[in-house]
Design a protein around this nucleic acid. Structure first.
Lengths: 138, 138
DNA sequence: CGGCATCCCTGCTGATACTG
DNA sequence: CAGTATCAGCAGGGATGCCG
């Protein structure tokens, strides 16, 4: 691996400039966004502030452990803001930071692309699977 | 889970419209893109057609197994085209399909976002880690 | 309510060896 | 060269139980 912490390569290969697996910010952010739950959390929080339990209920399928872990990661990256209200019973609110909001906005482009192409992808898969099926039986 | 195969929710929650974990195209494509090697392969192939070994050498760190798996997935999704030349020794060329090229283009926005914000994220992390460190020692 | 600690299990990944 | 097949190791994630 070339650049441990930053991606600005002294490397002549431009593609390697922004991704050579580890130590690259792109990789880390991408992993965060593509995380099973992060994207959904971001999408939910973009709409409005939510409490822990509300998120848990909305997402439906997430374990409390993973929701906590996900929120901590997002908080650490400065994408989500966590507010603890010193009341009893405890109340913790989560909201997107401005940076988190811009990330969500950026992600929408990818979501839009997926929606535009999901039919073509499904078709490509079907075709591929059929080709492979024939190849095996032949 | 609500919509097994498609994401057009009858659900009133709009966020759930495009992601409720499984069965959603967005999730699958996102997983593909965020895959450890897929993004790099796409980036490399966007520049020019490459052979298997060339990709292997360029990526540096990928096992031949994972490169194969990655390429098969991308091929199945119709993002990469595979050309087998019936010669000896074998020669297999990989190139981006038009759809793959548009995906790469879309991804660039996310990469750009990451580059724009990586300093802020690093700062957020440092601040968070320090806060936590103090909290534990206090 | 919100969260952390523990245990455990699945599956992804890498290493290795073999084939057309 | 370009794979496929097999095996083993480890991390991710769920389930459970306990605290503030």
């Amino acid at each position: 691996m070339k650049s441990p912490s930053h991606c600005t390569g002294t490397d002549d290969d431009q593609a390697r400039q922004w991704d050579t697996r580890e130590g690259c910010e792109v990789r880390q952010i991408l992993d965060r966004v593509a995380d099973k739950w992060s994207l959904l959390v971001i999408a939910l929080l973009d709409r409005r502030t939510l409490r822990f339990t509300e998120l848990r209920r909305e997402i439906d399928g997430v374990s409390q452990r993973m929701l906590t872990v996900t929120l901590r990661q997002l908080e650490r990256d400065g994408l989500v803001h966590r507010t603890v209200h010193p009341v009893v019973p405890p109340r913790v609110d989560y909201r997107l930071t401005p940076m988190g909001a811009t990330l969500h906005h950026t992600i929408q482009a990818l979501v839009a692309w997926t929606e535009d192409h999901q039919d073509k992808i499904a078709a490509a898969r079907a075709e591929y699977d059929q080709r492979e099926g024939e190849a095996r039986s032949a």
